[in-house]
Computed example of a mutant assay.
Amino acid sequence: MKEQHIIEVNKDLCIGCGLCKNDCRVNNIIIKDKKSAIKNQDCIKCGHCAVICPKEAIALTGFDEPPIELLK
């Protein structure tokens, strides 16, 4: 990775649906004040939370290349 890996939730976009929380393999997301919140930055960097978010409220930074969309 070229820069520090950071996960952020845009509280203005988040609707608190809980999809990211339910999908997180390492239980690193909670719902606080009806919005998603990241517990800590020590995750497995899988990106599932960002991909599953219907409002694109979660951003991951610090990767060398942009994400690749896999089509079925």
Results as ranks from 00 to 15, higher is better:
23 D>C: 06
46 C>T: 07
28 N>Y: 06
39 K>G: 01
46 C>L: 09
2 K>V: 12
36 S>M: 12
36 S>D: 05
53 C>I: 08
8 E>L: 09
38 I>T: 10
67 P>D: 14
48 H>W: 09
46 C>P: 02
52 I>H: 00
35 K>D: 02
3 E>D: 08
5 H>T: 05
58 I>R: 06
67 P>C: 11
14 C>M: 04
9 V>W: 07
64 D>Y: 00
2 K>M: 09
29 I>D: 03
22 N>D: 12
60 L>D: 02
43 C>G: 09
48 H>N: 13
2 K>L: 11
42 D>S: 15
8 E>M: 11
23 D>G: 11
19 L>Q: 08
24 C>I: 09
8 E>C: 11
67 P>V: 13
27 N>L: 13
17 C>N: 03
49 C>D: 07
4 Q>L: 10
38 I>R: 13
48 H>A: 13
1 M>I: 03
31 I>V: 14
22 N>R: 12
32 K>E: 14
21 K>D: 02
30 I>S: 10
5 H>F: 15
44 I>T: 12
70 L>A: 01
4 Q>I: 10
28 N>V: 01
4 Q>N: 13
17 C>L: 10
65 E>K: 15
45 K>L: 03
29 I>T: 07
8 E>Q: 15
51 V>F: 14
47 G>T: 07
62 G>A: 05
17 C>M: 08
8 E>P: 01
69 E>Y: 04
54 P>N: 14
54 P>D: 12
56 E>L: 03
41 Q>N: 12
69 E>H: 02
18 G>F: 09
64 D>F: 00
8 E>S: 14
37 A>R: 06
4 Q>P: 01
33 D>K: 07
37 A>N: 06
43 C>F: 05
48 H>G: 01
23 D>L: 13
23 D>Q: 08
59 A>R: 12
11 K>C: 04
29 I>Q: 07
25 R>Y: 03
24 C>K: 09
23 D>R: 12
2 K>Q: 09
23 D>A: 15
55 K>P: 00
27 N>S: 14
45 K>W: 02
12 D>R: 11
54 P>S: 13
55 K>L: 04
56 E>Y: 10
7 I>T: 14
8 E>N: 14
45 K>D: 05
59 A>T: 15
11 K>Q: 15
24 C>F: 05
55 K>C: 06
70 L>P: 00
10 N>I: 07
9 V>H: 05
32 K>G: 01
45 K>V: 00
38 I>D: 09
55 K>N: 15
59 A>P: 00
36 S>P: 01
26 V>I: 12
68 I>A: 07
44 I>P: 00
60 L>F: 02
35 K>I: 04
52 I>C: 04
20 C>L: 13
10 N>W: 02
19 L>A: 11
38 I>N: 08
43 C>L: 12
47 G>S: 06
13 L>F: 11
5 H>V: 08
2 K>H: 01
58 I>N: 03
20 C>V: 09
31 I>N: 02
72 K>R: 12
63 F>G: 05
15 I>F: 00
10 N>H: 06
55 K>Y: 14
65 E>R: 14
63 F>S: 10
31 I>F: 03
28 N>G: 06
7 I>W: 01
59 A>K: 15
65 E>H: 13
